[in-house]
């Protein structure tokens, strides 16, 4: 039975939420100014996703 509070996220959803939250936190901690922060957050978010998907595909041949 599923707990009333229990969340079920797909792999991709979990990765996107993780990447977004961490990118925003890193952007605010490491940069000053709205433009620099936005640029850093966007780049970091895109790289998180690309590298995550890339590692996923790199592991694909060994998954079976």
């Amino acid at each position: 039975m599923m707990h009333p509070y229990e969340l079920r996220l797909s792999h991709f959803q979990a990765m996107v939420i993780f990447a977004l939250v961490i990118s925003i936190a890193f952007g605010f901690l490491s940069r000053r100014g709205a433009y620099k922060r936005a640029k850093y957050i966007l780049w970091s978010f895109i790289l998180f996703l690309l590298i995550g998907v890339g590692i996923g595909w790199a592991m694909y041949p060994f998954s079976r």
Partner: peptide
């Protein structure tokens, strides 16, 4: 920065515990 730190940690804890 204070708001972002609080929100990020809170969100991660709520999601992590929810999962």
């Amino acid at each position: 920065r204070a708001l972002v730190c609080f929100s990020a940690v809170a969100l991660l804890v709520i999601l992590g515990a929810g999962m």
